[in-house]
Write a protein that binds this DNA or RNA. Structure first.
Length: 311
DNA sequence: AAAATCCGCAACCGCCGCGTT
DNA sequence: TAACGCGGCGGTTGCGGATTT
């Protein structure tokens, strides 16, 4: 059984569109509007699947599409929206006038994702990559250990990244007054002490420096939450904020979060949520090491970037 | 200069949600 | 209520240009 295909597969053209095909599609849409993509190819004289026509129009031919390089503000907006919405490219695109979901998805995968990885930030969770943090913490705190015995356990590339991150992390933690409690090995569940120890890392991030959270490039982002009862879909990795009289964002579940190695306990953009106490302020953090992205971000989601509808 | 590799992006594929029958 | 059909979405692919060897 299965569903019938959206169009007859035989005799339909695939691959790149020709200028003639584009013109036919443009002419048809200008004349008849877009809609009923199933019958459009036939009426427009195109040997294409309706889906293909819709995609071509939506991603390339639409007159309101803005093409060209993403601005730094657009890039920052994508990162912040992705932090909240996850891979909801269409939702993100809806907040970036002139940009398509496909374009944003491609830009994320080819540029932003790699940049975040280079900075030691997990592009899925937007947390510092704990695999690197764990190793770098390990390197920092275990100079007395004979590390060579553990090297076979660690990917060499990962080790290199962790090593480079190691000093950066120290700077970051100091600059932002972050308390990072680290317990390197938990062998309590290991009956056979010859087994490989499990890395765990209880993390407790704090900041007492309000400036740490302000804006990127020294400018506040144009975000604002609609009201104080707003519950964000996701809050990421700043658990407590001491710059004001009250905690802005609840810790995920307890005062000190414990993450197992391998992100098994890591909140994900699509799954975690928490309560917002405060007055329209959403605090999050970033470890930005290059480009024009922020170190610590205090952004407010405005009407333009209202994400409540996606919750 | 040619071959190999990398990279970006347009387009495709398959699944899902929702409205209709 | 279930089946169907369509539009929409996100993940993936593969082509072509750029870069490296």
């Amino acid at each position: 059984m299965g569903r019938t295909p959206c169009c007859e597969k035989t005799g339909l053209k695939k691959g790149p569109w020709t200028p003639e095909e584009d013109q036919k599609l443009i002419d048809y849409v200008h004349k008849n509007g877009c809609g009923n993509w199933r019958i459009l190819p036939k009426n427009a004289g195109l040997q294409r699947c309706g889906k293909s026509c819709r995609l071509r129009w939506a991603n390339y031919l639409r007159p309101d599409i803005k093409r060209g390089k993403f601005s730094s503000l657009e890039e920052e907006t994508i990162i912040q929206l992705h932090r909240i919405l996850g891979n909801k490219w269409s939702a993100i695109a809806g907040r970036l006038p002139g940009r398509t979901d496909n374009e944003i998805k491609n830009y994320w995968n080819t540029h932003i994702r790699k940049k975040l990885l280079r900075m030691g930030i997990d592009p899925v969770t937007h947390y510092p990559r704990l695999d690197l943090l764990e190793i770098s913490e390990f390197l920092n705190s275990s100079s007395q250990l004979n590390f060579s015995k553990f090297q076979p356990l660690v990917n060499s590339n990962l080790l290199g990244s962790a090593t480079s991150l190691s000093s950066q992390n120290q700077d970051f933690l100091q600059q932002n007054n972050v308390v990072l409690e680290t317990q390197l090995f938990d062998n309590s569940h290991v009956k056979n002490q010859n087994q490989i120890p499990t890395l765990i890392q209880p993390c407790h991030f704090q900041s007492q420096n309000h400036q740490d959270f302000l804006g990127f490039n020294g400018m506040p982002l144009p975000f604002t939450f609609p009201d104080e009862n707003y519950v964000p879909a996701v809050t990421n990795y700043v658990y407590e904020y001491y710059g004001s009289s009250q905690s802005i964002v609840d810790p995920p579940s307890s005062e000190t979060s414990t993450f197992q190695s391998g992100f098994s306990n890591m909140p994900t953009p699509s799954s975690s949520s928490t309560t917002l106490h405060s007055n329209s302020t959403y605090i999050t953090e970033d470890i930005e090491r290059e480009s024009n992205c922020s170190n610590m971000l205090n952004f407010q989601i405005s009407d333009i970037l209202d994400v409540n509808e996606f919750v």
